[in-house]
Computed example of a mutant assay.
Amino acid sequence: MIRRATVEDIPEIHAMVRELAEYEKALDEVRASEEHLREALFGEHPAAFAHVAEDGEGAVVGFALWFLNFSTWRGVHGIYLEDLYVRPTARGGGYGKALLTELARVCVERGYERLEWSVLKWNRPAIDFYEAMGARVQGEWDVYRLTDEALGRVAG
């Protein structure tokens, strides 16, 4: 079952964020707390949205956290999928596909024309999964990021 996340899901989402970061060999980079997620997802001005996947017993086994982006070329919003994660014990059960299907449905329903995300180049299982669903790598684009000291320096 796929559903919109609720405030009660925050502890599980936070735990899965940490599990994902550990899988990506970047657990030491996680600074987000449950309170950060609560504010981002359910605060006065939500900046992000989330869906969760539940197994047959109602346990949360995966999540998709996303936010809106905008295409100046297409003139409409799209969804940027920040994180998609399914716990290892639930992989192969269709939860990842169901989460992506729900986000695609949201795009179509709202007139959004893109569903985009990034994947680590070494994460072959994820790449194979996404490509099997019809997603294609945008090979002409590289992602750039300013953080920490560089962000502060550029901000002046």
Rank of each mutant, 00 (worst) to 15 (best):
G78E: 03
G94F: 05
A48V: 02
A126K: 12
V52T: 05
H36F: 02
V30W: 08
G92H: 04
R4A: 14
E19D: 15
L120Q: 15
A50W: 11
G58S: 03
R124T: 15
H14Y: 09
G134Y: 10
E8G: 12
S71F: 06
E102W: 11
R136K: 15
N123S: 06
A98N: 03
R74T: 11
G94C: 09
P46V: 00
L20F: 07
I127Q: 15
L81F: 05
L115R: 04
L81D: 06
R110G: 04
V76Y: 02
A32S: 13
L99Y: 10
R87I: 14
H14S: 15
H77Y: 10
E29I: 01
D148L: 12
A98Q: 05
H36K: 01
D148Y: 10
Q138F: 15
V61Y: 07
V86Y: 03
A135K: 10
V76D: 03
Y80N: 07
L151E: 11
V137I: 13
G94T: 11
D142K: 13
E54F: 00
L103N: 08
G43M: 01
S71N: 09
I13T: 02
S33K: 01
E113I: 01
E39T: 02
C107F: 10
R114I: 04
L99T: 05
V60Y: 08
F42D: 01
A90T: 13
E35A: 03
G62S: 08
F70T: 06
M133F: 07
R105F: 01
E22Q: 10
N123V: 04
L84F: 12
F67D: 06
A15I: 00
L65Q: 10
Y80T: 03
A53S: 12
A90Y: 11
D55S: 05
F67Y: 15
A5P: 02
F129G: 08
